[in-house]
Design a protein around this nucleic acid. Structure first.
Lengths: 249, 249
DNA sequence: ATAAAGTCTGACGTTGCGTCAGGGTCAACA
DNA sequence: TGTTGACCCTGACGCAACGTCAGACTTTAT
């Protein structure tokens, strides 16, 4: 079932001009266009639009949204989960603002006293860990670089990447009961690091270590990693930490 | 206690450049400036900034915020109460979005089915009655025009306005059991319309009718109006609607 | 007294649309 | 079948709210 602009606009609450704009910048081009140039939005287009709006609500610039949606690493289910966390975070920020406001009302009446810092609780918009993670996960410049290298490799290469990662993980998982500091493990971890760097990410030691930490701090990562074997996430985190420390020392 | 830009920026979470900007456009000029031109923000400046940020959070354009804050009708306590309602409304909108997102997750798994309309619940940002009211109360272009006319009238005149409105309302309230379409009622309503126009609001027929509708649709208005007599709000809404229709026809 | 950190003022760039203007399309009704 | 009214298109320009330099001055710390 295809819809034209006005219908989509009314359905979603965005303006027609916005849809034009998204088309122009290549963020959302309707699957079909009539001979006369009329845009026809498919069901899939609507889903994409919904994703766009969620990301937009979280403050992502449109350019990044486009990169994310096209990134080969993009996974809708994962994105939805992340968006949920980020929205919850946003809500609690709003709650803080409301509390601040209520306190301000009382403060104005002279019933209580607020410090200056308290008067701005909730405004500081800079530290949403989930937004941060989303940026880590897909965002920033990393995306277009990896996109670039992927493009360079062509379609065939892309398929191989998944396999490469898979086999590497399997090899590592097989070692998960050994000492993470041992030579064999460290060598394999080195391959993993090189692999990431090859993808255009260029992880510094800190970043590499941080990535490892993410594997155990975020249970969604943990679950995914542990599919390769029980305790794999923790093992990776340890091994990556050790490698990072050795690189610095 | 005076603070310089960086301190204010860190305290409030806005950038230094934003503070510069707000100064430039006359939205928030620090009370003191050193000889060298360094900005020095006072306690009162911080309070103003807080108000600015609340309004900004609600999506008000900076220009309007400036007008509101300088409007003679501006009352901080009232503003705070209104902001609270608007923020609560915003939160419930966010709640709707979160629910939508959670449904979408289930929908993606095939566990439930959503209609297209449901997929965009919460995105439609256009109907927040409190924001609407705030705009009605102080906002739009109306403010600076009425501000101008008020300024022209001087202080004494301002006091009179309240009284004028009061007596007009009393007169109208006395007629509230008559036919809203009758000549006498319509003549009084005409005075009310003229009064508003005289304040620089220039209500079109539609706007005038809409204002009447507000009296009965929003119970806070209703309560205030009904202080002049039971059913006064409804009577006004009817009479204003009739006048508007006659003006168009 | 000199470096480091902070501040100032332009000037220009950017994002995400809104707002016309000028012109084509489509469905329905006369 | 012609015409009207609702709908669509593509530029081109405008605008708000800053971000980002660049170049120069000030304040603070050592």
């Amino acid at each position: 079932m295809l819809r034209k602009v006005k219908e989509v606009a009314e359905l979603t609450g965005v303006s027609i001009r916005t849809l034009h704009h998204y088309d122009r910048i290549g963020l959302l081009s309707p699957e079909h266009v009539t001979e006369a140039g009329y845009r026809q939005y498919s069901e899939r287009d609507l889903e994409t639009l919904q994703q766009i709006l969620f990301f937009r609500e979280l403050g992502f610039p449109l350019k990044n949204i486009g990169e994310i949606l096209q990134s080969p690493e993009y996974d809708k289910a994962e994105a939805l989960a992340l968006q949920r966390e980020a929205l919850l975070e946003k809500r609690s920020r709003l709650d803080r603002m409301i509390r601040t406001l209520e306190n301000t009302i009382q403060d104005a009446k002279g019933e209580i006293k607020m410090t200056d810092k308290e008067k701005f609780e909730g405004f500081d918009f800079t530290n949403n860990p989930y937004e941060e993670e989303a940026r880590q996960r897909w965002g920033n410049e990393a995306v277009d670089r990896s996109k670039q290298t992927l493009a360079d490799m062509g379609q065939e290469g892309q398929k191989q990447i998944g396999e490469q990662m898979d086999t590497l993980f399997r090899r590592l998982a097989a070692m998960r009961h050994r000492d993470p500091a041992s030579d064999e493990v460290q060598k394999a971890i080195g391959e993993w690091h090189a692999f990431l760097n090859g993808m255009g990410h260029t992880y510094s030691p800190e970043a590499f270590k941080g990535l490892g930490q993410l594997y155990i701090q975020d249970e969604r990562f943990t679950r995914n990693m542990d599919k390769f074997g029980d305790g794999f996430a923790k093992f990776m985190a340890d091994a990556m930490g050790i490698r990072a420390d050795r690189m610095k020392g």
